[in-house]
């Protein structure tokens, strides 16, 4: 971005360039950034460093004075089976939601993108509205739908030959229930992102392919899918970050239960910090959480970023 400005500056009248550079001098730019930077520093950067620092201390209800313990908190987590169960649950949730939400989003975007007349905006509203509902409200609604006795879910799935399940009360089915609900809540947003990207693909490409005799299936895999890679990368990153943020559903639907089978990282942090008042451990988990997020995103950019075609920025 700085390159283009520099090129432009060079092409223009030197006096103007001088004037512009003059106005830039004296830290003017930083003045404009200051309001944002104050809040970013206080609520994004400082917390990262502060939790890394606090993670080295024992600081809880029993020890109201901070005691330096080095990496003791990390070692304690390493030996804690529940910590590994929580990570497993997060992984399970990510694997359960991300591929399905992305596939559904893409599939529906391709369908909705066709010339469907007036029905099209009806479909868009019907498929997108779950995004507008607060997650807490959606979670509450699905507690009712998953009700084992008179819930809608068991009633209608019975027609498909699926046996009655206790869902949120069953240790094997509670997490899948949360996954089902989350897919319903989120696929509409991904559909819209794909829809936007689809509208950016020139129609001539499809016409040319049709003339060459490529069928719909081939056109999708040879044109649509490759040209959607930037959108897919964006959706994938959003999906990963938001899958790690899962909290509201767990809080409302199961409180991490039964037997911690739906306990996830955010809820585990919440428990330590605000139920057990163990701030040191909460900070340790927070630090692990942030590291996990950053490593994942770096990995995605390294391995997927290369294959993505971007328009020249």
């Amino acid at each position: 971005m700085s390159d283009s400005t520099a090129v432009l500056t060079g092409e223009r009248a030197p006096a103007l360039a001088m004037a512009r550079r003059f106005r830039l001098g004296g830290g003017g730019a930083y003045f404009y950034l200051l309001p944002s930077l104050v809040f970013l520093a206080l609520f994004t950067y400082y917390p990262i460093g502060f939790s890394a620092y606090l993670s080295l201390f024992r600081w809880n209800v029993l020890n109201p004075e901070k005691i330096f313990v080095g990496l003791e908190n990390y070692l304690q987590l390493w030996r804690e089976p529940l910590f590994w169960l929580v990570l497993r649950n997060n992984l399970f949730y990510a694997l359960g939601t991300i591929p399905m939400t992305m596939a559904l989003g893409l599939f529906l975007a391709v369908l909705v993108n066709q010339r469907l007349g007036a029905a099209r905006s009806l479909y868009r509203v019907a498929l997108f509205y779950p995004t507008m509902i607060p997650m807490v409200a959606a979670a509450m609604l699905w507690v009712w739908i998953f009700n084992p006795g008179i819930g809608l879910f068991n009633y209608y799935t019975a027609f498909l030959g699926i046996p009655r399940i206790e869902w949120l009360y069953d240790r094997h089915w509670a997490l899948p229930a949360i996954i089902i609900m989350s897919i319903w809540k989120n696929f509409g947003y991904f559909m819209l992102i794909y829809l936007a990207a689809l509208q950016g693909i020139p129609a001539e490409l499809y016409e040319a392919a049709s003339i060459e005799g490529a069928g719909a299936w081939r056109r999708f895999w040879r044109i649509t899918f490759p040209l959607l890679t930037p959108a897919t990368l964006f959706v994938f990153i959003v999906a990963i970050i938001s899958s790690f943020q899962v909290f509201d559903q767990v809080f409302v639907m199961t409180q991490g239960g039964p037997a911690d089978q739906t306990n996830v990282l955010t809820f585990y942090i919440y428990q330590h910090a605000f139920r057990f008042w163990d701030i040191g451990m909460g900070a340790t988990l927070t630090t692990i959480f942030i590291c996990l997020l950053l490593v994942l995103i770096m990995l995605i950019f390294r391995y997927a970023g290369r294959r993505v075609y971007y328009e020249a920025d």
């Binding site: 970050i241 927070t286 995103i297």
Partner: peptide, 30 residues
């Protein structure tokens, strides 16, 4: 504008998109 440290600062702004409140609520509460 162009200024010293522009890309670095812009990167710092972008980091916020990757660090949701879910990852900072304990220190922010304090």
């Amino acid at each position: 504008r162009t200024f010293r440290g522009q890309s670095l600062l812009f990167g710092l702004f972008l980091i916020q998109m990757m660090i949701p409140i879910h990852a900072t609520f304990v220190p922010n509460f304090l």
